[in-house]
Amino acid sequence: MRPTLRQLEYIVAVADTGQIGLAAAQLNVSQPSLSAQLSEVEADLGAPLFQRGRSGAKITPVGEDVVRRARQILHEHKDLRAAAQGGGIFQGRLRLGVLPSIGPYLLPGVVQRLHREHPHFRLIVREESTRDLDEGLRSGRLDMIISTPEDHPGAQSTHLFTEQLWAALALDHPLRSPQGTLPLNALSGQTLLTLGSGHRLSHIVAGLAASAGGRVSDEYEGTSLDAIRLMAATGAGVAILPSIYAATERRRGTDVRLHLINDPAASRALALVQPNLPQPRPGSDVLADVLQSEAARILAAPDGAISVQN
């Protein structure tokens, strides 16, 4: 049967690297052999998958669809073997995409536990914006993602937890309150700091600004939560931060005052999202449980000020 699974691996490797030579080295085959196999596949399918040139191998529109389907077939084959061996996703490699506003704070404990309990499991993590995560999931570049489920219609989502949003104020900001909470209308007239427009968080913050009568800064778009927190510390505005990051900051001591925004709209839901296959990938429920328990551990503040909703 052609293309063979090995040939599908060749196609995906060339698409990922953009270079036949690099793909050959990655797969430990000779470049002439890989090139010949690629030509054979294109002849069998009756269409060119790549445009070869001095600059590399550029994928064609037909090639994009073939590569997407090749990834899905390879994933299904890997799941078949994993199901037969009884370990599901933990029998091999999982490419997990995650929002940069959650990954560095949630995943360290998760990775440590998974490597301890599943020593042969290889987790590859990619931090990307919401838009790039969606592209990665649709193209097959990523196996699963941790993201806001409303941004990935048609995919399978397993709810993990809901984060509340916090306002980070400069230490001398007039809005600081001993109660530790702020009503949404307290942000009236304030400049809110958030991540760039490719992130769902920025859309949530824009909605909060509109409801409160504030404005989102058009002079500064943060590339990380650390960056917008530092800007808030200088008095440049009010940074809007999700709970897991806020909990991390509280524990290590911070240069801003954190106040929970007391409004139902000041929240975001996170989910484990995967392609819409007939059945979820074996073991994904175990991964979801580990993610949920680690989030609950991080958010279990001694004073109860930071909480998580499962």
Results as ranks from 00 to 15, higher is better:
residue 1 M to T: 11
residue 1 M to I: 10
residue 2 R to L: 13
residue 3 P to H: 15
residue 5 L to C: 07
residue 6 R to H: 09
residue 14 V to A: 09
residue 15 A to Q: 09
residue 17 T to R: 11
residue 20 I to D: 05
residue 21 G to L: 00
residue 21 G to N: 00
residue 22 L to V: 08
residue 23 A to F: 06
residue 24 A to S: 03
residue 25 A to I: 07
residue 27 L to T: 04
residue 30 S to F: 09
residue 33 S to P: 00
residue 37 Q to H: 10
residue 41 V to Q: 07
residue 43 A to H: 08
residue 45 L to H: 02
residue 48 P to V: 06
residue 52 R to D: 11
residue 53 G to P: 06
residue 58 K to R: 13
residue 66 V to H: 09
residue 70 A to W: 11
residue 72 Q to G: 00
residue 72 Q to C: 00
residue 72 Q to W: 04
residue 74 L to T: 01
residue 76 E to M: 13
residue 76 E to L: 15
residue 80 L to Y: 03
residue 81 R to Y: 02
residue 84 A to D: 03
residue 86 G to S: 06
residue 87 G to V: 14
residue 88 G to A: 14
residue 93 R to M: 15
residue 93 R to G: 05
residue 95 R to L: 11
residue 97 G to Y: 03
residue 100 P to I: 15
residue 100 P to C: 04
residue 110 V to K: 07
residue 115 H to D: 02
residue 118 H to T: 14
residue 119 P to D: 11
residue 119 P to Y: 11
residue 120 H to D: 07
residue 121 F to W: 10
residue 123 L to R: 11
residue 123 L to A: 02
residue 131 R to L: 15
residue 146 I to G: 05
residue 147 S to M: 06
residue 149 P to G: 04
residue 151 D to A: 13
residue 153 P to I: 15
residue 154 G to L: 09
residue 156 Q to W: 09
residue 158 T to N: 05
residue 167 A to W: 06
residue 169 L to G: 04
residue 173 H to C: 01
residue 182 L to C: 03
residue 186 A to D: 05
residue 190 Q to F: 13
residue 193 L to K: 02
residue 194 T to N: 05
residue 196 G to K: 15
residue 198 G to C: 01
residue 198 G to Q: 15
residue 198 G to P: 00
residue 203 H to V: 10
residue 206 A to Q: 14
residue 206 A to F: 05
residue 208 L to Y: 00
residue 210 A to E: 05
residue 211 S to D: 14
residue 212 A to R: 12
residue 212 A to L: 06
residue 216 V to W: 09
residue 222 G to Q: 11
residue 222 G to P: 03
residue 222 G to D: 08
residue 224 S to K: 15
residue 225 L to D: 01
residue 227 A to V: 13
residue 228 I to S: 00
residue 231 M to N: 04
residue 232 A to F: 05
residue 233 A to P: 00
residue 235 G to M: 08
residue 237 G to E: 05
residue 239 A to T: 01
residue 240 I to L: 14
residue 242 P to M: 10
residue 246 A to I: 02
residue 248 T to R: 07
residue 248 T to E: 14
residue 251 R to D: 05
residue 252 R to D: 02
residue 253 G to E: 05
residue 255 D to Y: 02
residue 260 L to G: 00
residue 264 P to W: 06
residue 267 S to L: 01
residue 268 R to E: 10
residue 269 A to L: 06
residue 269 A to Y: 04
residue 278 P to S: 10
residue 278 P to L: 14
residue 279 Q to A: 14
residue 279 Q to L: 15
residue 281 R to P: 03
residue 283 G to P: 06
residue 284 S to N: 07
residue 285 D to V: 03
residue 288 A to D: 03
residue 288 A to C: 03
residue 289 D to G: 11
residue 295 A to H: 07
residue 297 R to M: 08
residue 298 I to M: 11
residue 300 A to Y: 08
residue 302 P to W: 09
residue 304 G to T: 13
